[in-house]
Computed example of a mutant assay.
Amino acid sequence: MNVAPWSTIGGGVDWAPVRAIQYLLRAHGHAVAADGVYGPATTAAVSAFQGGAGVSVDGIVGPETWVVLHIETAQGQTGDAVRAVQQFGLVPSPGIEPLIVDGDFGPITRERVQHFQTSWGLSIDGIAAYETWSFLSSLVPGFQRWPLVKVGSTQASNWRVLAAQYLLRHRGAGIVADGVFGPLSGAAIQAFQQTLRATFIGDTVGQLDWPALIETVSLGASGDAVRAAQTLLPGSLTVDGAFGPVTDAAVRDFQTMFAPPADGIVGPVTWHALTQPIFD
């Protein structure tokens, strides 16, 4: 749950993962049209798959079903399981054509998967496996997914590392915000998690951690929570921990584009928007 934000999808919707579900069902031998609509035929096929897989039979693809339905694919493979990945498009930036859904996991598909992994702070191997599939599954309207910050990440490979470190410092961790999420940072997030819950403990900043780490800040605030926000804001802000007029203007500019209203307050909605990939 903390590092794998599997979605729950049932009948009557036409979201992006629906066609992926249909292609995966086909890869598992179920004759269903990949039309992108979760109708009665898809519900029946999901129920049949669930019965054969030994999971709860309800015709709904939730975390339990996703875990057994998804199929790991990598460069060199072909077929409907590859089409399931390709149909997401995985466009890295405006003006780039979506992937061709041809069922051939070639170099371009691998590059797009790697870009998706980089965008969300996942392990960057170009393989569509458990972790990547959990994020693909969550590409549905209104799903509030948070990126990962993993041990071994640097500010260069994951631009949220400094923000995570500053937020951990804000919550009392005695670590240096150096842009390298190493073992000490991993231990710090584990210690923080243990103050929140008894399960989903690990050295990765994930879905359950960001909402607890963030702090609402606005004009006049100071400290490490402000530094965290400053590292995430576009432009070349001085990361000084002082929420002054320049930071306020940067926040309002960002909110105008991505997180209205432009009130200058970095609250949960703005924090979430600041951590998101822009084009995925």
Rank of each mutant, 00 (worst) to 15 (best):
I214E: 01
D14H: 12
D263G: 09
D35K: 15
L219R: 14
L232Y: 12
G174I: 01
P92A: 07
Q230P: 02
S123W: 13
A27Q: 08
G59R: 04
V61F: 01
T238I: 15
V61Y: 00
Q276T: 13
I175W: 02
D102L: 08
Q194C: 13
P183W: 04
V149P: 00
E72Y: 13
A187C: 13
S157I: 07
G264P: 03
W159C: 11
A212C: 08
L219D: 12
G51C: 12
G106R: 00
P141G: 08
T204P: 05
T238P: 08
F200D: 10
F49H: 01
I265E: 12
V68K: 01
S185I: 05
D80K: 08
A262N: 05
V269F: 14
S56G: 14
V180R: 08
T65L: 03
L136K: 03
F181C: 11
N158I: 13
D178L: 08
T204V: 15
F105G: 00
T195H: 11
F116P: 02
V101S: 02
P211I: 05
D203K: 09
M257G: 13
V176Q: 07
I175A: 02
A249S: 12
W120F: 14
T78K: 15
A198R: 12
T216M: 04
L237N: 06
N158L: 14
L232K: 11
G174C: 02
A31V: 14
L196Y: 14
G126W: 03
S138A: 09
R26L: 09
A44F: 12
Q77V: 13
R19T: 06
A164M: 06
R160E: 07
V113I: 06
P268N: 03
S218W: 11
V180Y: 05
Q117I: 14
V246G: 09
I21R: 00
V82K: 01
G59Y: 06
A191F: 07
T199N: 14
T216A: 10
I96H: 14
R112I: 04
V205G: 00
P211W: 08
W133P: 01
G244S: 10
N2L: 01
Q165P: 04
G172A: 06
Q155S: 13
G126M: 09
P107A: 10
